[in-house]
């Protein structure tokens, strides 16, 4: 449904950020992109969002090529990036300008309710805590009902408790319309908690190192032995990605049924 075809990105200063990355995401699939810093995972997300253009290769959503921000693709950044001059409700409704006022308000109210911020509509973003602001940012991207949702380390600035609770919130929101979710993270636990598939990337130049299926039912018990094992496998791949020589060893789709 979301297809990345031999994506390459070389910046004008010569840095090769991505080298022939090919990925295929099913509709409604949640894929976590895991990797150390500088492995190009954020670049990859920006290419998919259409905010940047690949040097080579293509991104497609349902066969349609993405070359600029597309209505079917929503993005959530590392920081909430709420517009400080708009109220919380206006921020959530930012992408709903095309809808009649009544429907816009209904969708915004529904969204506020879903993230536990009912009654926060008239407040200013500066009155929100970090976790609340990021929840608003998430529903701002979700109210337009994108088919693909991209997230760039959306919870990395939050404390562990808030992060876990937001991950649960995110899954609950995802349930409603089940968009395809591509999530960049450096947090192995986050990948294990959310993803159907963890794609581990390798730096310099950025490329896919391992593609690990996560065969856990939802809701996931973070203390179960299976969950811990998934974390271990992802972590092992991550370690491997950082220590492996720059050779093209792709263990693509390797351990499915590894336990």
């Amino acid at each position: 449904m979301l297809t990345l075809e031999a994506l390459c990105k070389t910046y004008p200063n010569g840095t090769e950020a991505l080298q022939r990355v090919t990925l295929d995401l099913q509709a409604g699939e949640i894929v976590a992109l895991v990797g150390g810093s500088g492995c190009g995972k954020t670049t990859l997300l920006r290419l998919v969002s259409g905010l940047e253009h690949p040097s080579m290769g293509t991104v497609g959503v349902d066969g349609e090529k993405i070359s600029a921000p597309h209505p079917a693709v929503g993005i959530i950044f590392q920081e909430p990036r709420l517009l400080p001059w708009l109220s919380v409700a206006e921020n959530i409704g930012f992408g709903l300008d095309h809808l009649p006022k009544g429907e816009r308000a209904a969708r915004v109210d529904e969204a506020l309710l879903k993230v536990g911020l009912a009654g926060y509509g008239p407040r200013w973003p500066r009155e929100l805590s970090g976790g609340q602001a990021q929840r608003v940012a998430i529903v701002r991207a979700l109210v337009t009902r994108p088919k693909v949702l991209l997230m760039d380390e959306p919870f990395s600035a939050l404390d562990a408790l808030t992060r876990a609770s937001l991950q649960d919130h995110l899954l609950a929101l995802w349930e409603a319309h089940r968009p395809t979710l591509l999530l960049v993270t450096h947090d192995v636990e986050e990948a294990a908690a959310l993803a159907d598939r963890a794609v581990v990337m390798q730096p310099r130049p950025g490329r896919v190192f391992a593609d690990i299926a996560v065969p856990l039912q939802r809701p996931r018990d973070r203390l179960s032995a299976d969950f811990v094992e998934v974390k271990r496998v992802i972590l092992a791949a991550l370690d491997g990605s950082l220590s492996a020589p720059a050779a093209d060893v792709k263990t693509q789709g390797a351990p499915s049924g590894w336990w």
Binding site: L51, A68, H70, G74, I75, F77, R81, L83, G95
Partner: peptide, 25 residues
Amino acid sequence: RKIVEVGRAFRLSRTALARRILLPA
């Protein structure tokens, strides 16, 4: 730049970007 990018991600036209992001900022 990050706020401007929000406008781009929501596919605002140049005039809409000026009116909804640039002006208030």
